[in-house]
Amino acid sequence: MRIEVEDLVLRYGDVTALDGITLTLEEGKIYGLLGRNGSGKTSLLSVLAAFRKPTAGRVRIDGQPVFENGRVTSRISLIRDVGETVNIGTGEEALSYAEALRPNWDGEYARSLAELFKIDLKKSVKNMSKGQRSAMGIIVGLASRAPLTMFDEAYLGLDAPARQVFYDQVLADYLAHPRTIIMSTHLIDEVSGLFEEVVIIHKGRVLAHEEKDELLAKGTSVTGPAAAVDAFTAGMTVLGSRSLGPTKSVTVYGELDDARRRKAAESGLELGPVDLQDLFIHLTAEDGAAR
């Protein structure tokens, strides 16, 4: 589903969670939604899922307003870390409930996922472990095949092998049934390969929204003798720097053309990529977010 957000503001009392978000997400891509704690990720997803009414601004999904619009919301699924969508009787009952609610429900797929995550569906969801409840949320989120599927830190309590199952299933099911998927996460390194586009929000605003490969291409680490590094990076956007004796490593933001790259090689400097997690940390650093 295509998402259009315009000047979205969300306040709780005198706390401003979203401070003028404008964003267009095309249909059929996997988006990574990144932000530090309290940046507004969960607030934004809650508005998209119609769990919350915006204080101001416009939200359109496939051209339709979402709040109190059942025709649209039945096609939207948000799975949150708390797993409230599945806290209903036994695992079996939670699946039946989702089946009644979700027009594209695939019960066979849900059962095969339960096997992959080793979930005993006869067990009461309330009595499951944190990780098992997270897995139940993921099962419902994937098997619903909602045209807009959102996972908000849905991996909490899952161990590393189970998280890998989650990521592999998201990708496999997306390849088989393309749809709009938004994943909010703090475990950026683990999942960044899946993203086509990345949205970074910071203090209730959009800090960056770009194709992931484009965003990655903008981050470069420049390493070498301190004086040469300083000369090369003068005038560039510097996100961070570290020194080890006479050697300095600086992270810069912005495209480097071939001429600049050749110049770096001639100056004896080493250029390296910056991964998404490092780029995110630098871009959202408190002491000088660089844009």
Partner: peptide
């Protein structure tokens, strides 16, 4: 390729 390398098909 996407499934094998665990990457987005756009990549």
């Amino acid at each position: 390729y996407a499934a094998y390398y665990r990457i987005n098909p756009a990549t």
